[in-house]
């Protein structure tokens, strides 16, 4: 059983963070960052995030295991068909990976390979069902596996998405498909978070609140313009704009959000974007 699974099962408040594999084969920097996170519950390894081609997260996550750091392997439906996804999942399990985060994936149009053919052979719910099938010892066609993998699979949710009901029906389907934990998109609106968690808690699957470190008012405005499902309220933008050191204000905001997570959710997922050394400050 992974540490993440154990801690959630024990009702502990979990904290995760994330690293991106390098663009290239020099893993020194990524490993250095991961070491700063080694005492967290687990470290997410992103999968060609933002549709930008980087080293396979499967390889990077396996390197973390070698270092004694517990990874969460992200796997998107964008780049692989159902055969590649299943074979990567079996490979992941053989390399000692248990935690997964299953995602649709950002559209290739946004990334550095906009001419690529996006796959989306499965969607994130179908991938979750597939993972469950594998852990039960069969592939998608029902063929028996020689040695079944063990996984602790999570999925993503955007709590602020509207209409709420449309977003929530997918959330509920993900629960039904066997999702063991959720990681949310960054949330800054506490009322919306309260509304979401009020409904989500009823389904019983732990939720890790996405906490994205705001470095400046400009960054907040950029997020509002460009990142779907992320809404930084004007009041927070004003706080960042008038702060003498915006990063310090951002860390304060992140700390407040972690506080809300402690009250409402079962964990927090920190996205610190180059300020990993400040994780301790954010956790307060």
């Amino acid at each position: 059983m992974s540490r993440l699974e154990q801690q959630l099962a024990a009702g502990q408040f979990v904290v995760t963070a994330e690293i991106a594999p390098p663009k290239g084969i020099d893993t020194a920097q990524a490993l250095e960052k991961a070491r700063l996170m080694a005492n967290l519950s687990a470290v997410n390894v992103t999968d060609n995030q933002g549709a930008n081609m980087r080293m396979s997260p499967l390889a990077m996550a396996a390197l973390l295991v070698r270092q004694g750091i517990e990874p969460i392997l992200q796997l998107t439906c964008r780049d692989r068909n159902r055969m590649a996804l299943q074979s990567d999942l079996l490979g992941a399990a053989a390399l000692g990976l248990e935690n997964l985060l299953l995602l649709s994936g950002d559209h290739a149009r946004f990334g550095d390979h906009p001419k690529a053919r996006s796959v989306f052979d499965l969607d994130s719910i179908q991938l979750m069902q597939t993972v469950r099938g594998l852990t039960e010892g069969t592939d998608m066609t029902g063929k028996i596996l020689h040695g079944a993998p063990r996984f602790f699979a999570g999925a993503a949710v955007t709590p602020e998405a509207e209409p709420f009901e449309l977003m929530f029906q997918k959330f509920a389907k993900k629960v039904q498909a066997g999702t063991r934990f959720f990681q949310t998109q960054a949330v800054y609106d506490v009322e919306k978070l309260e509304r979401f968690m009020g409904e989500a808690n009823r389904l019983g699957t732990p939720v890790l609140l996405g906490v994205l470190l705001l470095k400046s008012a400009r960054m907040a405005e950029f997020l509002n313009r460009n990142i779907p499902g992320v809404r930084v309220p004007q009041a927070l933008i004003d706080r960042l704009a008038s702060a003498p050191v915006p990063l310090e204000e951002g860390i304060l905001i992140a700390r407040e959000m972690v506080g809300h997570a402690r009250r409402l959710c079962q964990g927090a997922h920190l996205m610190t974007l180059g300020h990993e050394e400040r994780i301790a400050d954010i956790l307060g």
Binding site: S104, H107, T158, A161, L166, K170
Partner: peptide, 14 residues
């Protein structure tokens, strides 16, 4: 755009 069969992705906005 992703041909999803079980509801919108996290990218839906307004």
């Amino acid at each position: 755009a992703k041909g999803l069969l079980n509801g919108p992705c996290g990218g839906m906005e307004e």
